[in-house]
Amino acid sequence: MTFVRPVFRHPDLPKNKLGYTRKYYEGALSTLCAGCGHDSVSGAIIQACFEMAIEPHKVAKLSGIGCSSKTPAYFLSNSHGFNSVHGRMPSVATGANLANRDLMYIGVSGDGDSASIGIGQFVHAIRRNLNVTYIIMNNGCYGLTKGQDSATADVGSINKSGSANMYQAIDMAGLALELGASFVARSFSGDKEQMIPLIKAAMSHPGFSLIDIVSPCVTFNNNKGSTKSYDYTREHIEATAAVDFVPFMPEITTQYAEGDSISVPLHDGSLVHLNKLAHDWDPLDRHSAMNRLYEAKSSGEILTGLIFIDVDAPELHGILKTVEKPLNRLNKDELCPGEQVLQTINAGFR
């Protein structure tokens, strides 16, 4: 377990505009290994939700099975959570989202959950542009079953037992780009400064928002030779841009310097501000994003930050043209055509 958390909180903890402290966004005590990258991601989710002053009960958090999928228990305890079936979180999230479009959906998955057993569901959730913040806590191995290589482990990456992975890695960000995802980002669990604004932007983006987060497994995949270790990731990280997220306010006062920076307005009025670090890259252009990603990959770098965003792609409810009122709130009068209509239907079958 990570740590024993004190129950006591300083009475003067800062409050957000809803009057909640950060504590209100926490969850149960983590049972993951001390130093697990996943706990840092949970922390970033908590911080992002706190700073955005999100009503926790308006969030539904969903996951599959695995170490990563346990984490929804460790943040937002006032939100409903659903720890579903291995690899099947996308379908459960799809159903949940269809039932109530007014909630915010956070899907948490791992590399085994999304790149192997659940890759079909991952692929199709993207095709549908499901409105979900989809976080992959990517450590290149199966932690709960003691360290087998996963499908995102790089070729040649050495695991704890000393053997080199023989198979090609699936790049989840690259795959998502190829599939037409409307928001693709990558981050590193050791980079809170980057994770928090990315999570905020993902939650504000109306559509499928992938954040593939390299989140090292301290117990089974943090050894020398592993390409998903803390050390390796720190040494090879490259960022597309310094990301800042500006939530919607009646008057945006934040000023950015002219030059190699770009502000992307989201539909809810918020802004994603990117101070570009990567050259020849346009986050609004899928081709450019793919090129940048593959360039980084071929030079052995791990590209992080917001890689691509399409703010205009219709999300699933737009595609299906569902009513504004959540489907789970429609009552019998709104749903049942009644006996008289049925009599007409009967007449058509005589």
Partner: peptide
């Protein structure tokens, strides 16, 4: 109506929606 990618997803969607009150 979702024509899912397979039956696993179909029942997953149904369960997700039912969990959420539809």
């Amino acid at each position: 109506v979702i024509q899912a990618e397979d039956e696993l997803a179909a029942i997953g969607v149904v369960i997700g929606a039912a969990w959420n009150g539809a």
